[in-house]
Design a protein around this nucleic acid. Sequence first.
RNA 1: CAUGGUUUGAACCG
Length: 312
Amino acid sequence: LRICEAMIRILERRRQFGGVWEMLEDLTRKGYPIPVEAFGVLIKGYGYAGMVEEAIEVLEKMGNLGLKASAGCYNALLEVLVKHNRIAEAENIYQRMLLAGFKPDKITSNTLLHGFGKSGKVKRARRLLEHLKENFIYPDAINYTALMAGLCKAGMPNEALSFVDDMTEDGYQPDVVTYSALIAGFCKAGNLHQAFILFNQMVDRGCLPNVFTYSTLIYALFKAGKAHDAHTLLNEMQQSLCSANIVTCNILMNGLGKEKKMDEARALYDEQGCVASVETYNTLISGYCKKSKLDEAFRLFHRMYVDGRPPN
RNA sequence: CAUGGUUUGAACCG
């Protein structure tokens, strides 16, 4: 299994999906058993490559090789479909999964709830929650958060917030992930006021904000043109012994770049001691381009190769 | 020397 997965990954990285199938057919011909789990890796690989149709076809091709898809394969495919907002197809695959005799597990339910949320299907989500309970599968904090995060991405933070009551009735309190998702949802909707109400509420309830929570709010403050408040919150974050990570750095640089303070942004990045990611470079390049400093932008572009992080 | 460690909830550029 390990060898099989490793080979699939290597071929995927080179976008040689044809080679993957050659290998699988070859193994079958020679009588080696192929572990079905390996196909989950392949399905995800197609997903990352944006080849959704091909991901769906993996199920058929498995049948051709005389193999039956596992729950993990169905879950992987559901995730690919949800990521690409193909919710009708996800629904279709889910029904096929049930027909094949699989019960939805935590991963299945999380993926579907996230997908229903992301496509604003509140009623369908409620129906799934009921169906799960009828089958003695009880939704937990993660299930509810997956749904709420989806709704937030759909620009429906108020609908998301309403599920806190359902969650509480089932005996679960929102955790730091739930709060961060809701805060991000209200920030995205431009309701910073409500975002900070939730921020204060979580602190009052003894739920400690983490780097996700702070980064979300710092990003929103910059976007609202409140650079000063963003800096204040950054200080607050550091005083609460929460250290910035690479995403926080990217957010700061993005914010400072908008203020056309690229030098300050670079200094800040060095000071935090973060290691530049592809996103870091993209953020900086984007900042320089907006300032029409193409020479600086290209300097960074070339440095990406030297750094071993080629442009995407 | 190299590669890999199936699948699910929150933040940044594109």
